[in-house]
Amino acid sequence: MKLLHSTKNYTLTGEKKVNVQIRDGKLHKINNRKAAFEIELIENDEYVIKVNEKSHLGQVVSLKQNEVTVMVNGNTYNFTVETELGSKRKEKLTKDAGKKVSKTTAPLPGEIVAVLVTEGQEVHKGEPVMILEAMKMQNEIISPINGKIKALHVKSEETVMKDQALFDVDPGK
């Protein structure tokens, strides 16, 4: 039988793609660069990551399935770890997939101070759909695509958490 346990190449997708090669269960190359990587736990959850002798301060924020969030030098990085098979599968499936209803979630926690559309209304890409206020800042939540408002999940004056579903836009056929 063919063994899958031996996956060696991973792709980390986030803002940028990073390729990681594993040898003997350890980091071997990152982006095809063989560098001296050293990861040392210093206290609680804090790590010192040495890349080519330069030290970075890191923390693990969360790990869920194959989604990892870390903080390095105060900046947050979200990665989805994909195995070779996973990457191939994704390529295959995205090729087959058609247009999808776009779901918009709250980018930050706050209060919906205004809903500017109604269900079924046509919206254009970039058109504001709601206004979210957080710490006295107003943020326009815009439609990511052209289409029809399929569903509004929140009402005016409702408090929302980060990532809470706000509305869906159906691009139609």
Binding site: L4, Q65, N66, T80, E82, T83, L85, G86, R89, K90
Partner: peptide, 11 residues
């Protein structure tokens, strides 16, 4: 639910 079969089985 998971993104791919490998991670499903890991789950």
């Amino acid at each position: 639910i998971f993104n791919d079969e490998e991670h499903t089985l890991m789950g």
